[in-house]
């Protein structure tokens, strides 16, 4: 089943990507091909087979509720493209 340009545009929106006309063209072809390839899994019988969610059998991994803080605030902000008053600066958003 082919992935239409409209679908590509919708998916790009969800993924917060801007695609050029040329990219939309390419990705609708690539995605069609890749998903066809992925569709092979549908020939496997998985009746009453459970899903593998984790890659191993671990469960109940918890942390104690204890404060550990060795933060270097500067280091945490050093990569910010734009900052002000110790905060990350972005264009005005109404919320």
């Amino acid at each position: 089943m082919a992935i239409s340009k409209e679908e590509v545009i919708h998916i790009a929106k969800l993924a917060s990507l801007n695609l050029t006309e040329e990219e939309i063209e390419r990705y609708s072809n690539d995605m069609t091909e890749i998903l066809e390839f992925a569709n092979e899994i549908n020939s496997v019988n998985t009746d009453n087979v459970g899903e593998t969610i984790a890659a191993n059998e671990k469960y109940n991994v918890f942390r104690k509720d204890e404060i550990k803080q060795n933060v270097d605030k500067e280091a945490l902000l050093q990569n910010a493209p734009s900052k002000d008053d110790g905060m990350f600066r972005i264009p005005k958003v109404i919320n």
Partner: peptide
């Protein structure tokens, strides 16, 4: 390309056919 494919297989209507199915085949 991978972000696009990944977003697609998780998006509503396709999750079961791709992601969930893949996890079963993984089993």
């Amino acid at each position: 390309r991978r972000i696009m494919v990944g977003t697609y297989v998780l998006s509503s209507g396709y999750y079961d056919a791709y992601y969930k199915k893949a996890q079963k085949v993984r089993t």
